[in-house]
Every structure is written in C-alpha cells, then in structure tokens.
Amino acid sequence: MTAAIVATEVSRTYDLDGVSVSALRGVSLTIEPTDYLAIVGTSGSGKSTLMHLLGGLDRPTGGTLLIGGRDVSGLTPGEMAKLRNETIGFVFQSFHLLARTTARDNVALPLVYRGIGRRERRQRATEMLERVGLAHRLDHRPNQMSGGEQQRVAIARALVTGPSVLLADEPTGNLDSATGQSVLALLESLNGEGVAVVLVTHDREVAARAHRQIVMKDGLIVSEASV
C-alpha cells in the first residue's frame, strides 16, 4: 500500500522583513492510508506549519514532500488546489462554514471546484450529511445549528470529495467536552472506514486517543510513539 503523504527532511523558513525565521527544521514523516495520528505541541512548536504543508496549503523551502505520490515542489498554485481538492479534507477549529449558505450547499462546495453539476453535488452532499447524522439539518444555516452540528457539517464537507487524508486542526477546540467526544468518535469511525486522520492539537487527552503521537518542539519532532 502506497503512503498517502511522505515528508523527507522537510523545512520551512519564513522571511519576515529580511529576517529569516525557521518554523520547521527538517521533519520526516510518513502518513499511511490507515493512520490515526496526533501531532502535539505548544504554540510556536511548528505543528501548524507542518499541518499546512501536509495539507498542501503551503510548500516547503527544503526537503521533499510527496502528497498522494506527487512532489509538490514543481506544482503551480492551481495544481496545488486540484491536489488538495482530490486528496485532502480539512477540518478547522472554527469550522469555517459559509455563513449565508445551507448545510447542504456548504458540504457541496468542494464539488463546485471539481466541476460537478448541481444535482449530483446536492445528492452527494445529502448522503454525506446523513452519514454524519445530520439528515434533519440539510437546509439549516450555520447560525441555526449548534457548535457540534457545525463541526459535523465541516467534517461532511471534508469527506465529500472522498479524500485519503483528513487533516483536523484542533477540531474540538471550540466545543464542550461531551460534544468534543462525539466529534472525535465520528473521526475515529471514519478512520475505521479507511481514511487517514491527522489531528493537530495541544490537548494531551485528545492526542492520547490516536494510534500514533508525534510531539513537536522548536520546529522538530522530539518524540514519536505508537500505541
């Protein structure tokens, strides 16, 4: 089985007003299609930068990064967008749903950029919302739903394109603990169905549920443990 993402000695340096700042200093990491991985670290440890690289939102300044078998260094922004659309699903701490748009149309959004027609988009979005337990919320707008429901909509949106990796950045950060638990349970059941799940979190309890844990500090992986 080919790895979903392979990072080899990946570094990322920012140029801030002429001063060079290293956010990642040589990180190697392989994500398999069945992985359930947590990336842990304090703020400034480089875990967000790593997540952006793994999700194809950003490109490394050193090392090689393969997403879905493709080296991202030679890709244009347009090709990167297509790669994200096809292989990655994002779940954010603050949900990032379009405010004036219904749950179904929010979920269908990634399919718009795949050039899929309106009818099929709506049908696939409906199926995905049923799968996350929101069949009764198809035409609700984000402000008519609870935080947990909004995060489920966001997860449905991440899944609708059939990605190989789900990247979740503090997915429980804005939720109370009971709701957070149910969102995590949903992610875990998806992982059981064959989607790699990568959690980025500073919450040790959340991280403890993953099968693999990576601890980051000062732009490096300081420890890696498998359960």
Binding site: P77, G78, A81, K82, R84, N85, H96, P110, T161
Partner: peptide, 8 residues
C-alpha cells in the same frame, strides 16, 4: 474556498 480546491 482555496483550502477545498478553488484555484487562484
């Protein structure tokens, strides 16, 4: 929109 696949 870009994260979910919108090109520039």
């Amino acid at each position: 929109r870009k994260a979910v696949g919108a090109r520039p």
